[in-house]
Amino acid sequence: MSEAVTPLNGADFEGLATIKDAGLSGMITLRGDLASKEVKAAVKKAVGLGIPLQRQALSGQGTAVLWMSPDELLLLCAYDEVAQKIAALEKALEGQHFLAVNVSDARTVLRISGTGARETLAKLCPVDLSPGAFTPGMVRRTRMAQIPAAFWLDDSGVFYLICFRSVADYAFGALKDAALPGGEVGVYG
C-alpha cells in the first residue's frame, strides 16, 4: 500500500501564532438524524463520545465529535482506525437512514496555537473570535479568505482548522501571511 502523507507534509511556521500541519487524522462524516437514539448509540460505540450540542465539539482520548450541521457530525480518530470505526458505525446503524464516509484523505488539519492564534484567524474569517464570544469547545464552519473552512478551539487554547486537501497550500499560505511578525493588531489584548 502507498504511504499516506498530508498535503503540507509537516510544514510549520512560527510567527504571531504557530501554524503547524497537524499530521494525518482520521475523519469520518456521519449524516443522519442526530436526535435519534440509534445515532447516539453508534457514536458512543465508535468513538466513546456523546452527540455535541449545536456548534459544539466533544473530545476524548484521541477522538472527537464535531457538530457540523443539523444532520451532520464529523468524527475524528486515529488515521489507521477509520475503517474499523466505520464498520462499527455501519453495524450499529443497520437499517437506519444514514451515511458514514471516510473523508480523511479529502481534508487536512492545521494546528494554530500561541498568543496570536485568535487574531490570526480573525484576520481571515468573518467571525467574532474575542475570548468572550468564542470559547473552548466551540466549532465554527465559515469562510477563510477565499475557501470554506471549519475550526474548533480545544481546552488548552489551541485552534484546529480543517479545510479541503486541495486547498491546503492556500490555507497555510494565508495563515502564514496573517501571522507574519509586524502585522500585530492587538485587538484581543
Binding site: Q54, R55, S69, P70, P126, V127, R140, R141, T142, R143
Partner: peptide
C-alpha cells in the same frame, strides 16, 4: 435559522 450562526453575507 438552521445552525444559528450570525454571520455576514460573504459566508452565505
Amino acid at each position: 435559522p438552521c445552525c444559528g450562526v450570525t454571520g455576514e453575507e460573504t459566508e452565505f
